[in-house]
Amino acid sequence: MMNPKTQNKVAIGTLYGIAGLVVLILMALLGYILVSGLPQLSWHFLTAPAKAFLKGGGVGIQLYNSFYLLILAMLISFPIALGAAIYLYEYAKDNWVTTTIRTAIEILSSLPSVVVGLFGFLFFVVKLNLGFSILSGAFALTFFNLPLLTRSIEDSLRTIDTTQREGGLALGLSRWETVTRVILPAAVPSILTGVILSAGRVFGEAAALIYTAGQSAPALDFTDWNPFNISSPLNPMRPAETLAVHIWKINSEGIMPDAKAISSGSSAVLVLAILLFNFAARYLGKRLYKRLTSA
């Protein structure tokens, strides 16, 4: 029988060990991706279009597609998620309807993304006849993102103390005014953090996009900003392979001679972008909180 003090030490030691292991795995992964990927990066790699059979292709279009798709998906999912979260947390009474909605959100959030992708394929691509397009992809990503974002915004609202709501109402503000003028401003920094973090997940999503946004990246003409032209970067009806899908595709059927290098480079870009999102989320959240709370 160990004495409590030794027990404590052993327990702490074990926990440190586990935490250390997690950090180590992350470091090893990041290290491997960056060490093999960073040397591939160049301005040419980041901007040039991909080549199907020859070496020397880049990921310019895929990178652009990733961002465009991300922005579209966020534009669609954020207002819905915000509304759902406000309804669920500020208005909904605790009854079976609310419970059903919550359960639905929970299940939706644990749906494997490949299932979301196949659903998107059958519904948006085939049934609604949107084809392999940015729009189909954005809708699929919305399905993927909506539950996570709703939960994260709800959590942000939860961090605002009830006394703030009472304070607003006691001043003669309506429920809606209290939500929009007191609660939301106070929650903005943490909502923003949640949005950026979920942007990171969306950015790296591949499975939901393979069957919706497609696996081809037609050449774009970056001087043509008319969204109705097929080669315009803004056209939402064109197929658009993203960076994450590109990595998947190169590794499963890439026949260009420098496939491995491109795959490593793309992975590094993807990881760097997601890291950037994470740091930006923290930084902006803190900055914004400071600004909003001290005017």
Partner: peptide, 23 residues
């Protein structure tokens, strides 16, 4: 209720200023 609470204000146990400036 909105009108009522304008005429009958309330101060709570825990000071609950909004996270904005004093003004």
């Amino acid at each position: 209720t909105v009108q009522i609470r304008k005429e009958i204000g309330m101060v709570f146990q825990q000071p609950n200023p909004f996270p904005f400036s004093i003004y």
